[in-house]
Amino acid sequence: MSESTNVATTGSRTTQILGFVVLLGLSVVFVLAFVVTEPDAVQQDAVRMFYIHVPAAIVALYLTVPALAVASAMALYKKTRWWDITAAAAAELGVVFCGLTLVTGVIWGRPIWNTWWEWGDVRLLTTLVLFLMLLGYLAYRRSVVDPGTRARRSAVIALVASTNVLLVNRSVIWWQNRTLHQKSSLIEGRLEDMKLFTFALSTLVFAVMFFWMMIHRFRIGWLEHKIETVGVDAAIAERRASAHAGLDEAISHPALEKEGST
């Protein structure tokens, strides 16, 4: 159909560049993580999990959730669908990256801690709660039909859920002797040069990936919004105008007028 009028993608020049940077970056990170960096003195090669687990956690906690919180606050303040859709996009990415953080953590924990999961660990618990809250947020959005109500209430839920990030971040400090999880290696400067560089690059690439996904996910939300509401009317109007321009003539055709009056 009308490919000349419809842009059949959510991509753009910007996303193409970002996507290319991500693919290139991930390749470099992979080589650094598996070929260039040395194994750890204690963890041996299991330390290579660090280069995906921590960047995923950083993106989840410090990009997706803050984006969700800011967008939700703005959705309440400005009352626009733009911010509401941004919040929904951030929450979905939050689920993806928070989920990956949990899964890679569980896999790393087995050889290093000798356990897949510890229910009593505050860091693990708060991260799992955050993940479930984000899932709940998305489920809630699907359960409310009215856009205005949905935007308002889900923004409040999101703001409450976002405060959990503080708990996740502080858990290893506040409950030092109640958590198995180690403290931040970064803040205390416990990473050697090449490991630090690999980790930093990986985090950067994950962050760019976040922006790439965020742009696409937002545009999907925007399109859904258009289809749900004004999109239907616009599509009809567009069709009337472009596909059947000839019908205008038919409308004023004497035969039709006559038929209509009988």
Binding site: V129, L132, R178
Partner: peptide, 30 residues
């Protein structure tokens, strides 16, 4: 609304389970 509501309740139940399961332990993990 039906399916999402069921999903929502499921997630909330899971959240409750995690809290109940963990908080007792977490208060005095070791």
């Amino acid at each position: 609304r039906t399916l999402p509501t069921v999903l929502l309740l499921g997630v909330m139940a899971l959240l409750g389970f995690v809290l109940v399961r963990s908080l007792g332990d977490a208060a005095l993990f070791f």
